[in-house]
Structure formats: C-alpha cells, structure tokens
C-alpha cells in the first residue's frame, strides 16, 4: 500500500470529509513524526510502535572503488521499534 491508496481508503470510510482534508490528515501525521525526529524527539504511537533516532559515531570510511580513506561525520539514523500489540498480531494472525 502506498500513501495515495491509504488516503483513498480513509476517504472512502469518511464520506463526510473532502479527499483534500484526508490528504492533509495523513500528511500531517508523517510530517509531525519527521519534525519530531529532526528535533531529536521520540514519537510513541500506542499499540503501533515508536519512532526514534539513533546516533552513529563518526568514523573513517573508505571509498570502495579507490580505497581512499574518507572521514564520515557523526550522524543520526531514524529507527522504528514495533509496539507489542502489533508485534503480537504479526505473529498470531499469520
């Protein structure tokens, strides 16, 4: 399922809403998560899971083509931890 399909399904279940509003709801949710992660905050969605960032230390990498050493700066990577309810569902409804 992609974002536009998700919007279509939610719009279908809510005939009183404009598609435009449903689009804005879905976009707001993911923008909100993104903004929080950019601030370094963790976002917990009960029953679903939690989004957070993890720090990756700076290191000396190597250009695999030339073998040349390159400095790789410290960075943050997004991380998702599945919530318990969803994890249980993944392993029972299968």
């Amino acid at each position: 399922m992609i974002k536009s399909e998700l919007i279509a399904i939610i719009a279908e279940n809510n005939p009183h809403l404009y598609q435009r509003d449903v689009e804005r709801i879905v976009t707001t949710i993911f923008d909100e998560i993104s903004d929080a992660l950019a601030r370094g905050d963790r976002v917990e969605l009960r029953g679903f899971g939690a989004f957070s960032t993890k720090e990756r230390a700076a290191r000396v990498g190597r250009n695999p083509r030339t073998g040349e050493a390159v400095q790789v700066d410290k960075k943050y990577v997004p991380y998702f931890k599945c919530g318990k309810d969803l994890r249980d569902r993944l392993n029972t409804d299968a």
């Binding site: 998700l6 939610i10 709801i25 949710i29 679903f48 969803l86």
Partner: peptide, 15 residues
C-alpha cells in the same frame, strides 16, 4: 479518531 483509523489501516496491511 482519524489518527487511530490511519494507524490501524496501516497495521492491518502489515499483518
């Protein structure tokens, strides 16, 4: 309610 519904739709698809 909508936030809840969206997350549950995503969950259903994943399951």
């Amino acid at each position: 309610d909508h936030v809840e519904a969206i997350l549950s739709e995503i969950s259903d698809r994943l399951v």
